[in-house]
Computed example of a mutant assay.
Amino acid sequence: MVTALRSPVSVSVRAAAKINLHLGVGAVRADGFHPLDTVYQAIGLYDDVTMTAHHHTGIVLETADYIDPADIPSASENIAIRALDLVRAHSGRDGHERLDLIKSIPVAGGMAGGSADAAATLLAYDRLHGCGLSDEVLLELAAELGSDVPFSLVGGTARGRGRGELVQPLDDQGTWWWVAVPSRLGLSTPDVYRHFDRLFPHALAEPAEPADLLSALASGEPLRLARTLHNDLQGPAIDLRPDLGILIERGEREGALRGLVSGSGPTCIFLCDSLDGAHAVVAGLRGAGHDVVLIANGPVAGAHFLELP
């Protein structure tokens, strides 16, 4: 008698891109890190990770047409695999898992796509194997992987301090419309921070608090929020890539309330007054020769489970 093998169990998790509404950067510390005071927002651009028990560990990749698969780190260097190794070691389990990764978050664009994949992997592993890890443990593991990974678990709008990994959710009842313009030419985050150090050798030990922005978020008024958007890394990023400054100026001429470099760049984001306003900015930027221009709303949920078909 032949016994049919059971189909492998799979778990799918969706995680969102992040943008920084405020990114305050302090002077570099002796350990090489910069203290941050930032306000994150998760927006409606997503990566999906499906994890399946398998006979070997690996990644199967599918990308949106505006993402070059060659830009995705190989399995040996991918943060999702590092997340898998970390949570497996924590759980004390043996075995292997395959990750089917569908990427729509721009790569190396300051939008934490890798961090989203890592957060999704932690959550998927916990569900797939019934580990029952607490939120606190998941956040601790996330912080070991990178500054943006804890926020990718939390989502919504949140304040990040320390290196960005100490996350405090914020009450944000607004609906904000964003246009994002990724760049096919990357921009090294360490290079941007080093340039910040050169440009601001007397930076404060601790960055200023985003009090005005927090008040603007509570108001729900797009114009008020636009006036308080801030990024200490924008100047260094534009100094290294002047085309980003030109792009921001163009987006604002096309009707955006405010343009901003996302994190360390090179993606630029534009706050708009409405969905219709966002469509008008998209049309203007595409007319100016930018072929990849994306619309997303925020805030959206952090990493969360999807039902498999």
Score class of each variant (00 low, 15 high):
89 A>E: 13
17 A>V: 06
80 A>L: 14
192 V>S: 08
37 D>Q: 13
198 R>F: 14
164 G>T: 13
303 A>C: 03
231 N>M: 08
144 E>P: 04
19 I>R: 00
308 L>N: 14
81 I>G: 01
157 T>H: 03
55 H>L: 10
180 A>D: 06
93 R>Q: 15
208 A>M: 06
25 V>E: 12
187 L>D: 08
188 S>V: 07
106 P>T: 14
66 Y>Q: 09
48 D>C: 04
56 H>D: 03
96 H>A: 07
64 A>T: 02
96 H>W: 10
184 R>P: 03
98 R>C: 05
163 R>Y: 05
125 Y>D: 05
53 A>K: 09
226 A>Q: 11
260 L>W: 03
141 L>K: 02
159 R>D: 03
46 Y>L: 09
166 L>T: 10
308 L>K: 07
143 A>I: 09
273 D>A: 15
129 H>F: 12
25 V>M: 01
160 G>W: 07
195 H>W: 10
105 I>F: 04
224 R>P: 11
255 G>K: 05
155 G>K: 15
102 I>D: 13
26 G>N: 04
234 Q>K: 14
226 A>P: 01
121 T>C: 00
261 V>L: 05
269 I>Q: 12
82 R>S: 09
166 L>P: 00
214 L>M: 10
149 V>D: 11
104 S>F: 04
40 Y>M: 12
260 L>A: 02
62 E>T: 15
128 L>Y: 06
191 D>M: 05
185 L>I: 09
255 G>R: 07
107 V>E: 04
71 D>F: 00
201 P>E: 09
261 V>C: 05
9 V>F: 02
208 A>S: 14
155 G>W: 07
168 Q>W: 00
180 A>H: 02
161 R>G: 06
233 L>C: 05
305 F>D: 01
212 D>A: 15
68 D>H: 06
38 T>Q: 08
298 G>R: 06
147 S>I: 03
197 D>W: 12
173 Q>H: 08
186 G>D: 02
127 R>W: 12
304 H>T: 15
21 L>Y: 06
195 H>L: 13
87 V>F: 08
241 R>W: 02
142 A>S: 08
251 G>F: 07
196 F>K: 06
288 A>P: 05
156 G>N: 08
40 Y>N: 09
209 E>G: 08
82 R>F: 09
246 I>H: 09
11 V>A: 03
261 V>E: 04
296 A>S: 06
72 I>P: 01
142 A>C: 07
84 L>D: 00
53 A>D: 14
201 P>D: 00
292 V>H: 01
34 H>Q: 07
162 G>S: 03
153 L>A: 12
294 L>M: 13
236 P>L: 09
1 M>W: 07
257 L>T: 00
162 G>R: 02
124 A>K: 06
119 A>G: 15
304 H>K: 04
162 G>V: 08
46 Y>M: 13
23 L>N: 07
116 A>G: 08
71 D>L: 11
211 A>H: 15
286 R>M: 13
14 R>M: 11
144 E>V: 11
50 T>C: 10
156 G>W: 01
19 I>M: 08
121 T>P: 05
29 R>G: 03
60 V>R: 10
246 I>T: 14
253 R>Y: 11
